[in-house]
């Protein structure tokens, strides 16, 4: 269980905090979505939850990040990494860039932890297996498509066997094909019981995998609740977050006078 307790974070040199008094809970096996306009603080939230802020990025943090009830302040980054893995938008910059094969790339994290060689190999095959990319094992990571690279990045996290996954707009830089590829994998992970905190602009993906969604605006949580309710709320579009296509189709139909009947039923 990952808990943020009244967390605020101000980057070094910034005048105002990027997130203010954010509290949220990611339960075991839950997929929690975060939406919000640009600059709302979604990335900052992910960095704080993963421990990278303030460990790798300078800034001042207030509040507490708890993992399974324990305060994480004293944990060094490599121990945070083994508990909460974070994936970013850009596929290329998250790969180590020094591995000639996808297999080595995914093994990179467990190797850093100094685990037994056999254990590293097992974890790597498991991660490849879960994501359905065993066929890529021998490929050069730099020669993959964006979607495939993103899966390799996620695989590199899974091999660390973290109890929580934090994904910051994992499909934002991908083309439709890559978005679908990654979306399907995330749906499988979610169905398999992974605990995931995910920020996304693509609400269709959130609708598919999240149980709950919170809305972040100007650094604070302004709404939270079950996915369907939050994503169908009227105020979201004004923030620049498009409702899921199902919701938009339903609205369009209702607007055109098809407010009830078989089509609407099919969409629910």
């Amino acid at each position: 269980m990952l808990v943020l307790e009244a967390v605020s974070y101000r980057y070094a040199g910034a005048e105002r905090p990027a997130i203010r008094q954010v509290s949220l809970t990611l339960d075991k096996g839950e997929v929690l979505g975060v939406v919000g306009p640009s600059e709302a603080g979604k990335t900052t939230l992910c960095l704080v939850a993963s421990g990278l802020a303030p460990r790798a990025i300078r800034g001042a943090m207030d509040g507490r990040v708890l993992l399974d009830g324990a305060d994480t302040t004293a944990l060094p980054m490599h121990e945070m990494a083994a508990r909460a893995g974070i994936c970013f938008q850009h596929p290329q910059t998250q790969l180590s860039g020094i591995c000639g094969t996808v297999f080595e790339e995914i093994a990179f994290g467990p190797m850093n932890l100094g685990l037994q060689r056999d254990d590293v190999v097992v974890r790597t095959w498991d991660a490849l297996d879960v994501l359905g990319i065993t066929a890529l094992a021998e490929r050069d990571p730099m020669q993959l498509s964006g979607g495939q690279m993103q899966l390799v990045a996620i695989g590199g996290l899974l091999a660390l066997r973290p109890a929580h996954l934090i994904l910051d707009e994992p499909t934002a830089q991908l083309d439709p094909g890559g978005t679908r590829l990654v979306g399907e994998c995330l749906a499988r992970l979610a169905a398999g019981g992974a605990s995931i905190l995910i920020t996304e602009q693509k609400t269709d993906l959130l609708e598919r995998i999240c149980g709950r969604v919170v809305v972040l605006e100007k650094g604070g949580i302004v709404a939270a609740g079950p996915t369907d309710e939050v994503l169908a709320a009227a105020g979201l579009a004004a923030m620049g977050v498009a409702a899921p296509s199902r919701v938009r189709v339903r609205r369009a139909l209702a607007g055109a006078g098809f407010g009830d009947g078989a089509i609407m039923d099919a969409l629910h």
Partner: peptide
């Protein structure tokens, strides 16, 4: 600009752990 992102990604994969790494 990439350096910051790469650094974070490396840290997120335990690269800053002191001591020896496993070699495959």
């Amino acid at each position: 600009a990439e350096v910051e992102q790469r650094t974070m990604a490396l840290e997120a994969r335990g690269f800053t752990r002191p001591g020896r790494r496993t070699l495959l």
